[in-house]
Each structure stands twice: as C-alpha cells, then as structure tokens.
C-alpha cells in the first residue's frame, strides 16, 4: 500500500468538533479515490492530514508502509505530491520556474536545480501540453492552465501518490474535463491518487473507489459504483438526486430535480 491511515482523528481545537473520526483508508499503486462530502465536512482537512501538513490528534498515517511521524518533510514529499486549490503567488514566476519548484524534494539545501532537473521539467511540460507557455508568468495564464501547471509541478517530484484538493473548482466545463483526463492518465501511469470533489459525476467518471465523509467525521469507503447511491447522495447533499444510467456513455449520471 502506498497510502494507509489507521484510526485517524482530528479536531482544530482541543475538545472542539471532531472533524475526522477513526478514518481508515488505504490506496495502492494505480488506484484512484474520490472523496465526496458536504461543504465543511473536512475533505481538505483529511488531505492535509495525509500530506502531514496537519498533525492528527491520534492515529497513524503510513506512506509506503512507513509511519509519517518518523519521516522528514523531504521524505514525505518524495512519496507524495500535493496539488492545492488554485492560488496566485505574490511574485510572477514563469511557468517553467514554478514547475521547477516541484523538484524541491530532490534538491539539497544550499543547492540549486541541475540540468537533470531542467530536463525533467521540460519533459513534463511537454507531456501536459504547456511547453508553449513555459516562459509566461504564472500569474498571467488562465485558471485552467494554472491548474495544469500545478499538476505538472506535482509530477516533476516523481512521487508515488498525488493528492488533489478540489482540482475542478473554479474551472469551466472544458477545463474540468481536461483536468479529469489528466488525472485518469496519471492513474494509468501507476500513481496512487486521491481527489476531493463536489461533483458525484466526477467520482463516477474516474471509477476506482469513492469515499464519503459525513458531518460526523466518519468515512464510508467502497467501489465507486457501489458506494454512490441515490440514498447516500441524498444524505450527503440534503436534496433529492437521481442516478440515471445513460446508454450513450454507458455510465450512471447524477441528475438534480427541477427547481
């Protein structure tokens, strides 16, 4: 297993609302997990705990079988890359240099990226289709391109797993699909992938496993087609939703009722 958690508990304030309660999940090579849940359930918190950006109250996170409490940030980062929600940095680094920062786990303190690092960045940019933009300031490209650059940055670290925090948020329809396609191709390359999303269709399209985080901090995990039911969706989103099988695409689609 690449990512494993055992009885993970977390709350932001001592004795406050428990955001995560006894979370157990595991993910292997080439597996994808979509985390669904209502606003404020703690989907991002869970990702942050796995990425060791937050310290859990109790429970263990293991990466490649190793307890993260005994790992240096660098070791964690070389197994696991994190694609945060879109944000604009204070300085307008070029796309190339932005992506280059993903090589940080491979570069020593007081050292700089070497030719080898540049080559990997070049290759990844080409793979993801951003070569044309590499000398443009990161702050001046579109939201979709920025999302792709952030994914490229996660890839250049050559990790085993990539975590996506709402990768489709703030993107138009086309870019949402583009991002999902990239995620799917990453899965096929063998990365273990966790994404958080608000759209059940995305979970269905990505396949793999789906986990639903409820307001009590409990996580229900299972195969996507099994876990996503009308009953559960109603519980999560507090509204009637229909799951209809569409023959044209040969999968279930989630349809909201009329207003």
């Amino acid at each position: 297993m690449i990512i494993e958690t055992e009885k993970l508990c977390f709350s932001y304030t001592k004795g406050g609302r428990q955001i995560l309660k006894d979370i157990d999940l595991s993910l292997g090579e080439g597996e994808v997990m979509s985390i669904l849940g209502p606003n404020g359930a703690g989907k991002s918190t869970l990702l942050n705990c796995i990425a060791t950006l937050l310290m859990p109250d109790s429970g263990i996170v293991r990466l490649c079988g190793k307890d993260t409490r005994e790992m240096k940030p660098k070791e964690v980062a070389s197994i696991l890359s994190y694609v945060p929600q879109n944000h604009v940095p204070a300085f307008s680094y070029t796309v190339f240099n932005f992506v280059l920062m993903g090589r940080a786990p491979k570069v020593g303190m007081f050292e700089r990226p070497k030719d080898e690092d540049f080559e990997i960045v070049e290759k990844t940019l080409e793979e993801i289709g951003l070569s044309e933009l590499k000398d443009k300031p990161y702050t001046e490209i579109s939201g979709g391109e920025r999302q792709q650059a952030t994914i490229a940055r996660a890839m250049v670290a050559e990790p085993k797993a990539i975590l996506f925090d709402e990768p489709t948020a703030h993107l138009d329809y086309g870019n949402q699909l583009k991002t999902l396609r990239i995620i799917k191709s990453l899965k096929e390359k063998g990365y273990a992938i966790i994404i958080t999303t608000h759209n059940p269709d995305h979970a269905i399209m990505l396949g793999g496993t789906t986990a639903i985080l409820d307001r009590e901090g409990r996580l229900t995990v299972g195969k996507s087609e099994e876990i996503i039911t009308e009953e559960r969706l109603r519980q999560v989103y507090g509204t009637e939703l229909s799951l209809i099988h569409m023959d044209e695409v040969d999968r279930d689609v989630c349809v909201p009722p009329n207003l």
Partner: peptide
Amino acid sequence: FGMSWWLDILSMGESEAKSLGVNI
C-alpha cells in the same frame, strides 16, 4: 546567495512550501 532558489519556494507561502518538502 547559496539558498536563493529556496527563497523562491518560501515566497509561495508556508503550506505550499511545506507540501513541497521544504524544512520551512
């Protein structure tokens, strides 16, 4: 001067830098 490249990463913000494996 020696750590100038790391300053780039620092300027991305604390949690970003941390997620990039930087001993911030």
